[in-house]
Design a protein around this nucleic acid. Structure first.
Length: 585
RNA sequence: GCCAGCGUAGCUCAGUGGUAGAGCAGCGGUUUCGUAAACCGCCGGUCGUCGGUUCGAAUCCGACCGCUGGCUCCA
């Protein structure tokens, strides 16, 4: 970041922080008995937590905004002063949350900021006066636990945004609107891709035919790429005996995510929350030689995890989902190469699906961990070397490893800048020893394998959500459920349109005729709304000359194109998984 | 799970105590049309569920279910 940009950021942050105090003053004037939590600046804005005599409703926001405008107009200075803890305790005697904060601060000198009638315990910095707050808007109200602890009282939080010009604020609000337009839940309904129905169960996804087409393209591509890279596809059941999960430690560590057991002829079974155990048991069906390794089992495996009702969210947080899972069993000396090739595969996938911004994170040993410190250090080093040999930039995420081993995560950004958890590569020290997963080495002795869990897309559900929001529903041709919509101008062109559909289908292209007795405008509109990449308009001219008139969903048009030429161009775009839909050139 | 808001036709939404509405979609007809919404008609809802208040409830109250925004959580 340039120093100029940094200075601007700091200025904005200061303004947002000051806006938060102004909001607190406004709330105080409306609710004199309010108790105050904390009110920091955040990305794009600020919030403040309050303990109030009654719940806020959205109708309260305009009143608070009005009051804030008055305070800003009065242009009151922010006055900083320092006091001792003792003085602070007196000043905030009616503010229990502030008192708690005061006790936890290390220094005896505390800084306070005051503007108008509002005094706050605060490190600052702030603007010189309230008049310097340029453009703001209060967005929403939310509950938030005091200090983020669900055992403590829930306060009411008001979120707002603030910018240094009205234009910047409006631009930000437009971005929020655009994000809402691209929301995968909205697009999923509009494009008829999937539904999640109360009647079937929350967090359980029904894939409609068009969503299923997209999923199948992803899955076919995924399977092909894995087969090419030496993975073997396997299938494992959705249920397994509970004892298996006791052995693995899941029952102990992930109890909260498991569904209650069901009774099958006196034996307890649970829905699997992970695919790894099936893969381990396949591995263990025979004695393995060091010569066989690495063994890579891949599965589009459906798992079920209990998620609390409040956290479910469209396709991105569900209770049953299909992971693009694989487990690599290898010798220690093979680990580095394996990680390198997973990284290569992951980045290839990300690129193919059209994402260009991503960040790599190497997570190191957490406080609670399985295995030895030496093993952790060694594996972490191997991951680091793999990243470096791949020529990739990465950041360290200290202590964020899973309890069973270090990992590399790739986070990528959608077109709107939303960050998504993408591929993850995790070394596992726990399961191989718990299940005694071994191979016979060159020395004729038994050795414990190194196991790597990895996914490159995450889950089919979450990945579709990512793709939908990234493309705003306008999928690249190879993924589009309907690739070509043939649009006859009048009924007499239906026969020709049908012929085109058949020829395109024979070429492996997903084409369909809009046979409705509607005007061409209506049919075009319908295809546009469905975001069909290619529209072929056929009327008298096209029938006479055996051509098509091509319209792209971008609105671009090309008349008198021979079917052959269109077909070849479309086939090429599909086969190459082209990211853009273009006029054949 | 917690706090707040919301739940009316397939979809988007109007309707604040007095017999449930619109547009789109669907269906039937007319129209056969050249690049983002032709015209006429018809069908369509136990107003999320259950209970309560009331002469009367989509509307007020309670419980439950679900959704949304957050919080917490997310191997």
């Amino acid at each position: 970041m340039t120093s100029k940009k940094q200075a601007e950021e700091e200025k904005l942050e200061r303004m947002r922080h000051s806006a938060s105090h102004v909001m607190a003053e406004a709330v105080q004037s409306i609710f004199p008995e309010a108790k105050f939590g904390i009110g920091p600046p955040i990305e794009d804005g600020f919030y403040y937590d309050f303990d109030l005599p009654r719940p806020l409703t959205p109708d309260d926001l305009p009143d608070i905004e009005d009051k804030m405008r008055e305070i800003i107009k009065a242009n009151q200075p922010f006055i900083r002063r320092e006091v001792t803890k003792e003085e602070a305790r007196k000043l905030f005697s009616a503010q229990p949350y502030k008192l708690e904060l005061i006790e936890e601060l290390p220094d005896d000198k505390l800084s306070l900021y005051q503007q108008g009638a509002f005094l706050d315990l605060c490190r600052g910095p702030h603007l010189n006066s309230t008049g310097e707050i340029k453009a703001f808007k209060l967005l929403n109200i939310a509950g938030a636990y005091w200090r983020g602890d669900e055992r403590r009282p829930m306060l009411q939080r008001i979120y707002g945004v603030a910018f240094d010009t009205q234009e910047a604020l409006e631009e930000h609000l437009k971005r929020l609107e655009e994000a809402a337009r691209r929301d995968h839940r909205k697009l999923g309904k509009e494009l008829d891709l999937f539904s999640i129905q109360d009647e079937f169960g929350p967090g359980l996804v029904l894939w409609h035919p068009k969503g299923a087409i997209i999923r199948r393209q992803i899955e076919d591509f995924w399977k092909d790429e894995h087969a090419k890279r030496g993975y073997e596809l396997v299938y494992t059941p959705h249920l397994a005996r509970i004892d298996l999960w006791r052995t693995s430690g899941h029952l102990e560590f992930y109890q909260d995510y498991l569904y209650s057991p069901m009774d099958v002829e006196g034996q307890k079974y649970i829905l699997k929350p992970m695919n790894c155990l099936g893969h381990i048991l396949i591995y263990k069906t025979k004695l393995r030689s060091y010569r066989e390794l690495p063994i890579r089992y891949a599965e589009l495996g459906t798992v079920y995890r209990y998620e609390r009702s409040g956290v479910l969210h469209g396709l991105s947080r569900v209770r049953g989902f299909t992971q693009d899972d694989a487990h690599i069993f290898c010798r220690p000396d093979q680990l580095e190469e394996e990680v390198i090739s997973v990284l290569e595969l992951a980045l290839f996938m990300i690129d193919t699906f059209g994402f260009s911004n991503y960040q790599l994170l190497l997570s190191t040993r957490p406080e609670k961990y399985a295995g030895t410190v030496e093993a952790w250090d060694e594996a972490t080093d191997i991951l680091r070397r793999a990243l470096e040999r791949s020529g990739l930039k990465y950041d360290i995420d200290p202590g964020e490893g899973v309890f069973y081993g270090p990992k590399i995560d790739i986070k990528f950004e959608s077109a709107l800048g939303k960050a998504w958890q993408g591929p993850t590569i995790q070394v596992d020290f726990n399961l191989p020893s718990r299940f005694d997963v071994t191979y016979i080495g060159e020395d004729g002795k038994e050795h414990t394998v190194v196991m790597v869990h990895r996914t490159v897309l995450g889950s089919m559900e979450r990945f579709l959500a990512t793709l939908l929001e990234h493309y705003g529903g306008a999928f690249p041709v190879w993924l589009a459920p309907v690739q070509v919509r043939v649009i006859p101008v009048a009924d007499r062109h239906l026969e020709y349109a049908d012929k085109l559909e058949t020829e395109l289908k024979n070429a492996g292209i997903r084409a369909e005729v809009d046979r409705r007795a509607e005007r061409i405008n209506q049919k075009i509109r319908q295809a546009q709304l469905e975001k069909v990449p290619y529209m072929l308009v056929v009327g008298d001219k096209e029938v006479a000359s055996s051509t098509v008139s091509l319209r792209l969903r971008s609105g671009e048009q090309l008349a008198s194109l021979s079917l052959e030429r269109f077909k070849e161009a479309a086939k090429k775009a599909i086969a190459s998984r082209a990211k853009d839909v273009a006029i054949p050139g």
